[in-house]
Design a protein around this nucleic acid. Structure first.
Length: 453
DNA sequence: GTTCTAGAAC
DNA sequence: GTTCTAGAAC
């Protein structure tokens, strides 16, 4: 009970860095939202966010797209759902409201917000920038002039600190404003650009915003390229070229394309373990616990107990069904790595005890051995299938796999039989308590066991 | 693997 | 009315 409370407190204290921003360029006739959606404007934001999220998985932040018009937000939400893959939802949210009153109206604190401006760094044609310049008065004009004496460039981001004594800082918690000069297609305003050019610049604008956000939150002074180089034309072109050239995200590596097509769906969710084998060094410590040339040990993304890790051989092996007698050595090595992890975990919490083994019918591709503590106390344990997959015969201890390989030289299971086990009535794995009907009751029961231990 | 949701069970 | 399950979609 008390542990739960402490954890709750910890979560509340953790301050997630927020960035609030509007839908760039879709207001006031530049890109009316209907047209914007039609030509796929929102895709540029979503793409930029996706790349950013993949790059900075360990970074605790949230991106809040805020507009007064829910129609605008819907367009972005739909596109996000369409292409977000397995990215965490809470990191990108859309909120109807006023960007300057996120905290007072919606209790969402954003230390950074994005506001559109003109190349002269003056209030643009939209309401938000007028409000900002009104709120901060001449101080803002002076600061902008001092920091950015040259004309602003479309697609670039220009951060400015919000005075600590201003209402914006005091009551809304806004510490910096990232100004951007957004692409303009409106022929009645200066320098209108073509549709193709505008789309390209839109992506650049979103990239600049996210870059500035990243660098500001990591203590580096964000420097717009205009303050570094004089030859603006050259730098911009080079910048665009670099960005389009270094976009390997959509390409499929030869390694993964060699795989036979997935039997289950096409979304690729069952392939999520592969990148850990191919490039474990790419992942933060919060995901990859350990790796060497042969094995990777990761934290299960949805742990079903206080400690739940996966020990994975890096060599391509789909599942236990592919194992042969000559793989006995590999299985023993997996067991050894598992024992090593268990020792480590026990040092942290001596109360824990573990089992290590395999699911008879795994959902994810690539052989993986579960190392899981037997408390089964975790918010991610939600249903009967979760429970039965670790507490019935469906869970096969690594020693059992060893025995089967020694005796029979291969591991062949009756899939239907094991899948039926997942539907068994709930039963406590520790005591003979009368069978428990519902998961919430089981979870309470498990808490009791934990508190008694 | 999870999330979403309709409809059954309470 | 609310809780819970199970199946489809992703």
């Amino acid at each position: 009970m008390s542990l739960k409370f402490i954890n709750k407190l910890k979560n509340e204290q953790k301050r997630v860095v927020g960035l609030g921003f509007p839908s760039i360029s879709t207001n006031f006739g530049d890109f009316p939202i209907d047209i914007a959606a039609e030509i796929g404007c929102e895709i540029h934001l979503i793409k930029a966010i996706k790349e950013f999220l993949k790059l900075h998985k360990e970074f605790d932040f949230k991106l809040i797209l805020t507009e007064q018009d829910s129609k605008v937000l819907n367009v972005f939400e739909l596109k996000w759902k369409e292409i977000k893959d397995d990215l965490e939802d809470f990191k990108f949210q859309t909120k109807k409201g006023n960007l300057l009153q996120l905290k007072s109206d919606l209790r969402i604190e954003c230390r950074f917000i994005v506001v559109e401006t003109t190349w002269r760094m003056k209030p643009g044609t939209n309401q938000l920038s007028k409000q900002i310049f009104d709120a901060l008065g001449s101080k803002l004009h002076e600061e902008l002039k001092r920091l950015y004496p040259k004309p602003g460039i479309v697609g670039e981001a220009y951060p400015v600190k919000v005075p600590k004594d201003s209402d914006l800082h005091k009551s809304e918690g806004i510490e910096q404003i990232i100004f951007v000069v957004s692409p303009n297609m409106n022929p009645s305003r200066p320098d209108p650009v073509s549709l193709e050019k505008a789309k390209e610049l839109l992506k650049k604008t979103y990239d600049s915003i996210l870059n500035a956000f990243w660098e500001l939150t990591n203590g580096q002074e964000y420097r717009s390229i205009t303050t570094i180089k004089d030859n603006v034309q050259e730098v911009s072109a080079f910048d665009i070229l670099m960005k389009s050239a270094s976009k390997p995200s959509s390409k499929i590596s030869p390694e993964s394309s060699r795989r036979t097509p997935s039997k289950v769906g096409s979304g690729g969710w069952n392939n999520v373990l592969l990148p850990y084998c191919q490039k474990p060094e790419m992942f933060p410590k919060s995901e990859v616990y350990y790796y060497d040339n042969e094995f990777v040990i990761i934290f299960d993304k949805y742990p079903k107990a206080k400690n739940h890790l996966l020990v994975i051989p890096r060599k391509q092996i789909d599942n236990i069904g592919e194992l042969k007698k000559q793989n006995l050595e590999l299985v023993r090595a997996l067991k050894e790595k598992g024992q090593w992890v268990i020792e480590k975990m026990k040092q942290e919490n001596p109360k824990l005890f573990f089992r290590m083994g395999f699911h008879a019918v795994p959902s994810l591709r690539q052989l993986h051995m579960h190392v899981i503590s037997q408390d089964f106390i975790s918010p991610s344990l939600k249903n009967k299938k979760h429970w039965n997959s670790f507490t019935t015969e469906f869970f096969i201890d690594v020693e059992e796999i060893e025995r089967i390989l020694e005796k029979q030289g291969e591991v062949k299971f009756n899939k239907a039989y094991y899948e039926d086990l997942l539907k068994s009535p709930l039963k406590c794995h520790l005591c003979d308590a009368k069978s428990i009907k519902f998961i919430p009751d089981l979870k309470k029961h498990l808490e009791e066991h934990w508190n008694e231990s």
